[in-house]
Design a protein around this nucleic acid. Structure first.
Lengths: 230, 230
DNA sequence: CATTTATGATAGTATTACTATTATATTTGC
DNA sequence: GCAAATATAATAGTAATACTATCATAAATG
């Protein structure tokens, strides 16, 4: 885990913003309130004008931080994946068995996120809801190739790569590690949404978090490995 | 398969439209051109005004068929799932072994769609691309519960239910059939998008359609069944 | 052939997604 | 502690979007 730890930093590609929102009180306010507002009204109805009113600031000022709401969403999701990698790096530290590391990584990737208050201006609980419901709108666009070239999805790709490496440690011949992990991540997010809004597309099971259980079971079976008993 | 066959009909919930676009030449033109235009410019940049120009008709006339572009998207995706159920109903007819039926259903759900020209005004190839890139925008909205109440997702839910039933036929104790199938469907769509735009999130394998193979393998392993040799 | 119905043309409104300009704070460097 | 630089606020403006309304005309139907 040494390499995970040392190469880690909770940073967002500096091209998603014009001015780093971490660099000022207004910037942090923009990020903080955008999370509340997007969670509240949804990304479609979210506008910089409304955000300006919410924080008693000015629409034009927000445009000095972000080119538009899609870039802000990209900022939020990039931050999220960077944070997720941080959680995983710490969560897996000093666990030698790759099976146990994979098990824990999947749990961290698919579990419900609680508010933990580690970051002043970021509500992780709401951010997770936003990532679930809105993040696909940040890459399912006509600008995806351009954005990808600029490195906006680097954090997500790196995270998928890291977890895929654990899979290959367990089973070096498994052919689809990236597919499996990206499917599990996106799938778990979809399932959380479905559980809330379209329950006929999921299966609730008493006494367990079915989404975590399903994700772990499917992953280990797919790669032909035994789940760690721990 | 008898029940699939008899209960099947290629219809879209009549509440997604104001006037049935199948009922007039203009309506069919709207549907046909909307597929081309959304495929071309993406759903965000797609407007009824542009569509009106494209078909040399009037914005206001389009509003007499659909309340807005989200409803049109809902129409297109509903049509797609209805069509997919039709494909599956016919594709599985007279196959007695549930393993073989499941295998084929997954293929039909996850394969690349070619233009087959069965429907005058619908380009299945482009519609598939739209479903892949845009369909989540039809339910990842603040209106999802309202829309669900009105039955807009019935076709999709029914399809997932049907395939889940095959799983339960093979393994009646499997706990997550709906999760598995909805994950496979959405996952395969995501993977098709990633393969095009974010290849580091997938795994290409020479000489096979890795997305179909991955989907089948993951499904059968998840439910603990042997894939049919056929 | 008259009447209903569908479409077209035009215009209008509120909101969105910005950009520009200028004024006023606030910070920083000396 | 002050000048200069920088950040923010206030206001206004533009083009486009997402509609709605009205009226005229064309097409279908009984």
């Amino acid at each position: 885990m040494q390499d995970l730890f040392t190469s880690f930093s909770l940073q967002v590609n500096n091209r998603v913003y014009i001015k780093n929102p971490e660099s000022s009180a207004l910037g942090r306010k923009i990020v903080e309130s955008s999370i509340n507002l997007i969670d509240d009204v949804g990304f479609e109805a979210f506008t910089f004008r409304k955000l300006g009113l919410e924080i008693h600031s000015n629409e034009a000022s927000i445009y000095r931080y972000f080119e538009g709401k899609y870039k802000l969403l990209l900022y939020l999701t990039s931050w999220y994946w960077s944070w997720m990698e941080y959680r995983i790096a710490f969560g897996l530290a000093n666990i030698p068995a790759p099976e146990e590391r994979l098990d824990k990584a999947i749990k961290l990737l698919t579990e419900n996120i609680e508010l933990d208050g580690s970051f002043e201006h970021i509500n992780e609980y709401k951010l997770n809801k936003i990532v679930i419901a809105e993040s696909s709108k940040s890459y399912m666009t006509k600008e995806v190739d351009q954005n990808n070239k600029e490195g906006f999805f680097a954090g997500y790709k790196q995270l998928v790569g890291r977890v895929s490496d654990i899979i290959l440690e367990i089973n070096p011949t498994y052919k689809y590690p990236h597919m499996l992990i990206s499917t599990i991540i996106e799938g778990a997010h979809h399932q959380r949404f479905f559980a809330q809004h379209l329950p006929r597309l999921t299966d609730a099971v008493n006494g367990e978090d079915a989404i975590i259980e399903f994700s772990k079971e499917a992953t280990f079976k797919a790669i032909g490995a035994k789940r760690s008993t721990k």
